[in-house]
């Protein structure tokens, strides 16, 4: 019944791992790499959320505004 709950854990996992990689790269003095890693992780998560928002809007359209 729940939509796709796995994605919740996926996002949380990506967040934690990216934060760890960021910390380690920063410790080693590779700040530019660290920022790239964070940016890429963020883009991936943002993509997932954007897809879901598209689904949401589509559903709302279908349910409430079905004749337009």
């Amino acid at each position: 019944m729940p939509y796709n709950v796995d994605a919740v854990f996926q996002i949380a996992g990506i967040g934690i791992i990216v934060a760890m990689i960021h910390t380690i790269l920063k410790q080693m003095g590779k700040e530019d790499w660290a920022h790239w890693v964070t940016l890429i992780g963020f883009i991936i998560v943002l993509f997932m959320v954007a897809m879901l928002i598209r689904d949401l809007f589509q559903t709302i359209k279908n349910v409430f505004l079905f004749h337009s």
Binding site: Y3, G15, L46, V49
Partner: peptide, 23 residues
């Protein structure tokens, strides 16, 4: 997640909200 990356926490909250609504 919030302690290290507030951005991810925000996206996660949005995601969970949408999932609950869709259910």
């Amino acid at each position: 997640v919030k302690e290290q990356k507030p951005m991810f926490a925000f996206l996660l909250a949005t995601f969970v909200g949408i999932v609950i609504f869709l259910t």
